[in-house]
Amino acid sequence: MTGTVLVTGGTGFVAGWCIAELLRGGHAVRTTLRNANKETALRMAITPAGVCDHALSVFIADLTRDEGWDAAMAGCDYVLHVASPLGGGDPTNPDALITPAREGTLRVLRAATKAGVKRVVMTSAAATARPPLNANRTSDETIWADPADPQFDAYRRSKILAERAAWDFMAQTAGPTELTTILPGAVFGPVLARENAGSVQIIQGLLAGRPSALPKLGFWIVDVRDLADLHIRAMTAPEARGQRFIAASDFMWMEDMAKTLRAELGDRAIKVPHRVLPNVVVRLLLPFMAQLRSLAPLLGRRFPLTAEKARRMLGFSPRPAAVTVIDCAMSLLDNMSLLDERPVSAA
């Protein structure tokens, strides 16, 4: 089944792969950009994914403004709302992330329902289904994280509040439009462009020898290609209507990620750190580790999580996390321009 699909925030890491997979599947694809000057770079970025961009149309629309959204939505069958502010946020002004994420989501949903879109699939985050760290509960789709929980930084609070706002809006809005949300873990995998590469910067840091010694931090990992596939499955599957789906493969400690890189990449991973820092030392140093500072509450924790619902209902079958880490590193090493520093926002 094909149709016209709008993907918000086309230059993003996840959005780029969603666009590529939709084009590969024969869909007419639209995407939004904040700046028309980025269109050429977007089209060049999806070329390595082996797709033709002739069926891709670009619309100018910003999550912080109403202009452009009605035109982008008109005639669309589906929307993948992937765009969201990135980065750790200004700790003195958390609304710098929270307000654009929440209000931008509502702006997209208002335009989608007005246009009679069949379904909106929204990218949230696995953190939105995470209980308090000492609750001894497994993260699943029945759980709603508390945005006031101190384990969450501004980025994760923005995801929690934006998803809550989306479900509240849909509950109060009549019409044919349906909502589904996807809750990914830390998204790694091949990088199409360096802009908004998000959590990929963790791999980039390891390849560059940063941090020089490894903290006891770990992530539930999902491959960006598998995440794009899950969005598209959720877009049309009747059983996905009104559902949340966690998207994750395996959990890996940074130490295991580093070992995997060294074992598989040989001399290309010569800078990857070996030493592991004791937690007590890491707690002293994290305030000075910009890339990992927001993850401090997760130090030494392997919180349980399940993606069984997505596997059972939508046939989600993600790659092993070790494969994702290697493919991510290879894409960075093969295109050195992708190794520039960018903010980190692992889910």
Rank of each mutant, 00 (worst) to 15 (best):
F152K: 05
A234G: 02
R302K: 15
A197S: 15
I60F: 07
H274Y: 10
L63M: 14
F219S: 10
P297Y: 13
P150H: 03
N279S: 15
A111I: 12
T11M: 07
R30F: 09
A171I: 08
G89K: 04
L299V: 07
L227R: 00
P343A: 12
R137Y: 04
A36W: 02
T123Q: 10
L292W: 09
P91Q: 07
E141A: 07
E39K: 05
P238Y: 03
A240V: 11
A165E: 00
E195H: 04
R262S: 00
T4M: 02
L277R: 07
D140K: 11
T138L: 02
V344G: 05
V117K: 06
G25C: 04
G68D: 05
A307Y: 12
R312D: 13
G315D: 10
G9L: 10
V51N: 02
W17V: 08
A154C: 01
G9N: 09
D95Y: 01
L338Q: 14
A263Q: 14
M122E: 12
G3S: 06
T306N: 02
L63D: 00
D267E: 15
R311S: 14
I232M: 13
V280K: 13
T142P: 08
M254Q: 12
T128D: 06
R311G: 08
M1D: 13
A329T: 09
R241A: 15
G75H: 04
G205W: 04
Y155R: 06
